[in-house]
């Protein structure tokens, strides 16, 4: 059963189509991540689900109910905001219980839910503090606590980790995912960070310009990107997009004579090759190394093949110097083929 369903939902402001004909479903107890660059419509989509914005057209279902025109309070959902939206004059305890007090949940029930949430999140020593006296990570936990005690059918999260430092973000990422799985919550999570999306999601919806580019599992998104945009957005360093040339009768990498390409028969394609799938071989596409980036467990070589630039990931420290000439090869099964005009996927070579 799907916990949330969006049917042809649009939100326009004049000519600006913030969200344009978006449809998807979220399965009960799963985590869906809305991913995309800033301005792609992911936050607006979340706010439409929450009821903080109203739809221009389309329908939104939560569970069996059509909530399209219901106010936020009646949609039975909890939300964690990017800024946490904690009430600065209330203590941690009052913040967490705010919604239950408003809804006049009986005292005993309130205490039970509070104790449970506080135990899960490790907030028991902080209950009498005010948000201003907490660190960013602790504030984040309080915001999570407020979402937990609501025991809502659906939990929405709007870039909840973007105000934390890298180490804490990594910790909270795991914690939120573990929480979601153990409690079986249905969660919609907005982020622009592909690592966050890939590591947490059951399903990812990649958005661009108010539209869905691809709705897939993380592994599918990585192995079968629907467009050049999807290929380029997922992965660090991003996928190499290689333009082609067929000037001398055979298809080559644009601007290169040695870079023969056997997998396609015309230059109306773009090849997508992940940096981690490129090998350095004794004979292949001739390339000049233009930069070397050392990352610890691996290094990224910035190479030029004809007119195209390719990143290549090699293990550990690389002894190849800038300016060196090397030969590259990518196994056919790892080459993604996209339409040169539309950017749409045409398949892999197998």
């Amino acid at each position: 059963m799907s916990a949330i369903q969006l049917l042809n939902v649009s939100r326009h402001w004049g000519d600006v189509r913030a969200v344009d004909d978006v449809s998807f479903e979220v399965e009960q107890g799963t985590m869906l991540v809305l991913l995309g660059p800033s301005g792609c419509g992911k936050s607006t989509t979340l706010r439409l689900i929450a009821g903080l914005e109203s739809v221009t057209s389309g329908r939104i279902m939560i569970g069996e109910r059509d909530v399209t025109h219901l106010p936020p309070a009646q949609r039975q959902l909890a939300m964690v905001f990017q800024s946490y939206a904690l009430f600065p004059h209330l203590t941690v305890r009052e913040n967490i219980l705010f919604g239950l007090t408003v809804r006049k949940v009986p005292e005993a029930e309130r205490e039970k839910r509070l104790t449970r949430a506080v135990d899960i999140l490790g907030l028991s020593t902080l209950l009498q503090r005010k948000p201003g006296e907490l660190s960013g990570g602790q504030q984040q936990r309080v915001a999570l606590g407020r979402a937990l005690v609501a025991e809502a059918a659906v939990c929405l999260m709007d870039e909840p980790l973007s105000n934390l430092d890298a180490k804490l973000r990594h910790e909270m990422r795991r914690e939120i995912r573990a929480l979601q799985q153990t409690l079986g919550m249905t969660m919609v999570y907005v982020t622009h960070d592909q690592t966050e999306a890939m590591s947490m999601a059951d399903r990812i919806i990649l958005m661009q310009g108010g539209r869905i580019v691809q709705n897939a599992t993380p592994s599918e998104l990585y192995s079968r990107p629907a467009t050049t945009f999807a290929g380029n957005f997922i992965g660090t360093p991003p996928m190499n997009l290689v333009r082609l040339d067929d000037a001398r009768g055979s298809v080559c990498v644009a601007g290169s004579r040695s870079g023969k390409v056997g997998v396609v028969d015309s230059a109306n394609y773009v090849l997508g090759i992940r940096p981690e799938h490129v090998r350095i071989v004794p004979d292949g596409w001739r390339a000049v190394v233009e930069s070397v980036e050392y990352l610890g467990s691996s290094s990224v070589l910035g190479c030029r093949v004809g007119g195209e630039e390719l990143s290549v990931v090699v293990d550990g420290v690389s002894d190849i110097a800038v300016g060196a000439e090397i030969y590259l090869h990518c196994p056919d099964e790892h080459i993604h083929i996209f339409d040169a005009q539309t950017g749409a996927r045409r398949g892999t070579c197998r």
Binding site: A73, F98, G99, R146
Partner: peptide, 26 residues
């Protein structure tokens, strides 16, 4: 911040409750 009003609204607080318990204390 406007997110406080939004959070209160999601939690089911009426406009009056939000003003009385959040805005006026702030």
């Amino acid at each position: 911040p406007p997110s406080l009003a939004e959070a209160a609204m999601l939690e089911g607080a009426s406009r009056l409750y939000y003003y009385r318990r959040v805005v006026i204390p702030l």
